[in-house]
Design a protein around this nucleic acid. Structure first.
Lengths: 210, 210
DNA sequence: ATTTTATATCACTAACTGGTGACAAATATA
DNA sequence: TATATTTGTCACCAGTTAGTGATATAAAAT
């Protein structure tokens, strides 16, 4: 063990402490808690280091985002399923993808906070993350469309509504318990949502198959 | 004209100035702009009056909300239509209600800001407004369900997703231009969304009619 | 062992926040 | 006209924010 590794004076280690502090604050206080002073305090380091090592808050957030994957990943399993799916199976696959998005976002509080942040104000970080998600999401959406031989744009709008609905319900569940009679803090409520997603997808894509 | 009416010293007038300032700030800067100092400055009055006349910011916001109607009103016309509708017409009526919600929210920037505020933090004002909307919304939803002889809860969840989708898309359009390939800053894009709503409602409610 | 460099802390600024007590001026009441 | 009340302004407080220049100290290089 070299001196540097055990030392309290270690740039890399300090940088990581600052990055970790961002995560800690987001999980504990939400995106509103993010700030130069709060981060430095949480990391037990002086705030001047944020300017020195990251050239300010934006730079730090950029590094923070780099270390996380803030795109809701469609599992490779499903990617393959899509690739090899027969046309008639795709309907169920779409529902499956949507449900995975729902669960993925529900399980990822950091991402929830960032998505909320995106909605409230534009900044370098939120723009970058949103852009990446839009691209990957539309890519997936297009692939599904292609596989189903759809050339209309109606299904894009249908998917937009469903994904948006999922986003809103998860984000709203942070601060409210019931939406349109559906409980947003119980598994039962989310099961109802998942069933509804399945039904909408079934009925819509059945209708356009003809 | 009495002395009081032309005077610059008029409590009622000052109170109204403060209430109006809240509105002005929300429209110009969003809910983030709301604050004791900013409101006083906007109203050209001293902030101490907010404490004296409204017992603080919460009281002022309460009066502000009282003067506005922050529930997206379903027009009386549609209320009547629902009341007198035949069962087979209700499907179209549901789509119509949803589209009216979309347009209503799009046209109401103040409400957009308040809904965003609701998602970010709980406070007296946002709780009250959200509660009212939940109640009125579920009431309408229940009436439609009753008229259609639906006793399952699936349609509640389906409606929840559709309404949520509408909310998210409108709120997101404040800070982003494209969502899943759909333009959120052009009439064309919103027309696609409306069409998709119509299609989802048609195909879903057709399927459960049997 | 001495100097140089890298790392981190400290102490401060200026601008902002919500909040309050003392005062001034206009109006109403006697 | 004299007094009381209402209405509004001012000046300050303590706490927070982002940002910076000077300084201390640990480690590396000579």
């Amino acid at each position: 063990m070299t001196k540097k590794e055990i030392s309290s004076r270690n740039k890399d280690q300090s940088m990581q402490k600052l990055i970790d502090a961002v995560s800690t604050i987001i999980l504990r206080d939400g995106f509103k808690g993010i700030g130069i002073n709060a981060i430095a305090k949480e990391a037990n380091l002086d705030k001047v280091l944020i300017y020195r090592y990251f050239d300010g808050l934006n730079g730090l957030l950029r590094e923070f985002a780099k270390q996380k994957d803030f795109y809701i990943n469609i599992s490779n399993l499903i990617q393959d399923e899509i690739e090899n799916a027969q046309k008639h199976e795709l309907k169920n696959l779409i529902a499956k993808v949507l449900k995975e998005q729902l669960r993925g976002l529900r399980d990822n509080k950091e991402l929830q906070e960032l998505m909320l942040w995106e909605m409230v104000e534009k900044n370098e970080l939120t723009d970058a993350i949103a852009k990446e998600r839009e691209e990957k999401g539309y890519e997936l959406s297009s692939k599904l469309k292609e596989k189903m031989d759809l050339n209309n744009n109606e299904s894009d709008a249908v998917m937009a509504i469903l994904v948006s609905g999922i986003y809103y319900l998860v984000l709203r569940s942070r601060t409210v318990d019931v939406f349109n009679g559906i409980s947003l803090n119980s598994e039962k409520g989310w099961q109802q949502i998942e069933n509804a997603i399945q039904m909408i997808v079934n009925t819509y894509f059945d209708s356009i198959k003809n």
